[in-house]
């Protein structure tokens, strides 16, 4: 299993961020749509496992399959581009600008949301037999999660908002570590092992992942969770997105870039 030296994988991170900025609108949307859909499916799978076994650890242990799938297929999550694309601007890559970064983030957000919503609808159909029956045990559980993680935070007011934000930060710290860990190895097995560990941590700890939530809450609403769309947006999605952005950028992107890239020997000659 090949292990890449930090200096080598950090240049890979910057290159990856740059290539995402250069990508056409069509590709960006397709890749983010698929990423959102696959991650949503994995979330549905993990909740099902947890409900059926009664042990959330097993659900968390298996959740990373979704993340591995979408990474290996080259799809993009908002959490990943939060970390990677700003690096191209930091490194002054030609043509890399903040407006380009914002464009990329908006497109990936839209794609992820559309993908997650599609799976949310499909899963709601499955859980309720095409909206003809009351949701099954898994469906009820998803509705309850939706309630607890919106209205539950709202009940605590500002403290709830802070908790939500910090959970978002912690989440993308772990998830982006997974993205970076996948770059450390050049083999599929190495990439999978690298991704599995941090993703497992985030899911079991119940940190707030903006794309997983794009699935959980809309399906919660469809499955009769007692909260509104505004509850979801204000008391979950928006703070989570901001928390994810801060977590990925500060704890992963900027730190690795400044310690492993900027301190690399001065580049004066033939590359």
């Amino acid at each position: 299993m090949a292990y890449l030296a930090p200096a080598e994988f950090v240049t890979k991170m910057v290159d990856a961020g740059e290539s995402k900025l250069l990508m056409s609108t069509r590709d960006t949307l397709i890749r983010s749509y698929m990423a959102g859909a696959i991650l949503a499916l994995a979330a549905a799978f993990a909740v099902t496992v947890s409900v059926n076994t009664g042990n959330p650890l097993i659900g968390a242990l298996l959740f990373p399959v979704g993340f591995c799938m979408l990474y290996l297929m080259g799809f993009d999550l908002l959490t990943g581009v939060f970390t990677l694309t700003p690096l191209a601007v930091f490194d002054r890559r030609p043509g890399a600008t903040w407006s380009g970064v914002l464009r990329n983030w908006s497109l990936v957000f839209l794609g992820n949301f559309a993908g997650a919503l599609t799976v949310a609808l499909f899963m709601a159909i499955i859980f309720t037999f095409g909206f003809t029956e009351a949701p099954n045990a898994v469906g009820q559980k998803i509705g309850a999660i939706g309630e607890g993680r919106t209205v539950g935070y709202a009940a605590h007011g500002a403290a709830g908002m802070l908790t939500l934000f910090v959970r978002g930060v912690m989440c993308n710290w772990m998830v982006s570590t997974g993205v970076v860990a996948a770059m450390m190895s050049s083999t599929v097995s190495g990439k999978v092992i690298g991704m599995w560990m941090p993703i497992l941590v985030f899911f079991y700890m119940g940190f707030e992942h903006s794309i997983v939530n794009m699935f959980l809450f809309p399906s919660g609403l469809m499955l009769g969770g007692d909260f509104t769309i505004m509850d979801y947006l204000i008391w979950n999605e928006i703070p989570t997105v901001i928390g994810n952005l801060v977590g990925g950028l500060t704890f992963v992107g900027a730190t690795l870039y400044s310690t492993h890239y900027k301190t690399a020997p001065k580049r004066v000659s033939v590359r």
Partner: peptide, 14 residues
């Protein structure tokens, strides 16, 4: 003598 650049494309030494 020393490393000039280590990147994901190549390693360059003096």
């Amino acid at each position: 003598v020393r490393e000039l650049q280590l990147s994901a494309r190549s390693h360059v030494y003096l």
